[in-house]
Simulated scan of single mutants.
Amino acid sequence: MDTWQTAFWQLRLAQCKSALEKNHFEVFIAQHCDEARTLFLDAILPKLTVRSASWADSMSLHATAILDALRQMPSINLIETFAPGVPREELIERRRQALLVDLFLTGTNAVTETGELVNLDMIGNRVGAITFGPRTVVLVIGRNKLVQTVQHAMDRIKSYSAPMNAIRHTGWKMPCVKTSFCMDCNSPDRICNTWTITQKSHPKGRIKIILVNEDLGL
């Protein structure tokens, strides 16, 4: 990566950090995924009392290998909500249990320059946990998720993130899988069901954000 591009995004991320902090989020900036994992392990986790943890689907989170580190900690009960070979009914029950953990980790669909999180969910376990339940929420957010306004965020999610997410999952039959465009469908597999706009973290600092100076996820 050219140094001038890194410097450009460092400025943008610093401005976003300031806006998020005004909205009561606790924010860290990492230059790459390894640094994001180190920040989590050294600056965030030691200040928490974590006996249970879980997570929602996030390519950004996976890129940091934070979950791999948590799996090596026997003192933390990690509720696996995407375990292979587990019946869907059991996974849904685990996702319900995950709403009461000490620590919940995931990403976001978009973050605005004014410090708001914008998300669109299929089931609602991710946005539900961000909103209420887990004592602490940690979000990993790549620089590509930064947009100007809430409307820009919603446009990006519907035109790009949602169709891309639909296509990357095998077996789903929404129209956008074939067209790459949102068709505002009525498919039983529809993933665009619940919007949330998180304007502020309540209580202050409950939601902790690691902004990463790399393109991560969709």
Rank of each mutant, 00 (worst) to 15 (best):
K178A: 09
T131V: 06
D184P: 04
G133D: 04
R156S: 10
N119G: 06
R95F: 09
G107T: 04
N119W: 11
D121K: 11
C185W: 05
D102I: 00
C185P: 01
R156Y: 12
V101I: 11
N125Q: 02
L105H: 07
H152P: 01
N165F: 11
V118P: 01
N144E: 13
E113H: 07
E113C: 05
T108M: 05
V137E: 07
P163R: 05
T196D: 01
Q148H: 03
F104C: 08
C182V: 03
G124N: 03
T196C: 03
N165G: 01
K178S: 12
N193T: 04
L100H: 13
I123P: 02
G124K: 11
G115N: 02
N186M: 05
D102W: 06
T108C: 12
N186C: 09
I123L: 14
D121H: 09
A166L: 08
I92A: 15
E90L: 10
I157M: 10
L139I: 09
T196R: 00
R96H: 15
C176T: 06
G133T: 11
V150G: 04
R94G: 08
F181T: 12
T149Y: 11
W195N: 13
A166W: 01
E113P: 02
H152A: 15
I123T: 15
R126I: 10
G124M: 10
A110G: 02
G107E: 06
T114W: 00
A129I: 10
A129T: 08
E116N: 07
V118D: 05
V138K: 11
G142C: 15
T170A: 12
K145Y: 03
E89P: 00
R135Y: 06
P84R: 05
T136Q: 12
P84S: 09
P163A: 07
G142T: 09
M154Q: 15
N119M: 01
L146Q: 10
V140C: 14
Y160K: 12
R156K: 13
G142H: 12
M174C: 08
T112Y: 00
E90I: 15
V140A: 07
Y160H: 15
K178M: 09
P163D: 07
V147C: 15
E116D: 09
D184E: 13
L99S: 14
T170I: 11
E93R: 10
T179W: 11
L103S: 06
V127G: 13
T112N: 01
V138Q: 12
N119F: 04
R168P: 03
H152W: 09
T114N: 11
I157G: 05
R88T: 09
D102M: 05
I130S: 11
L117H: 08
L146T: 12
L91Q: 13
K173R: 14
E113N: 02
A98I: 02
L100A: 07
R94I: 08
Q148F: 00
Q151Y: 07
G107L: 00
C192S: 10
T179C: 02
R95C: 04
L139C: 14
N119Q: 10
K158L: 15
V147H: 12
T198D: 06
K178N: 10
R143Q: 13
A110K: 00
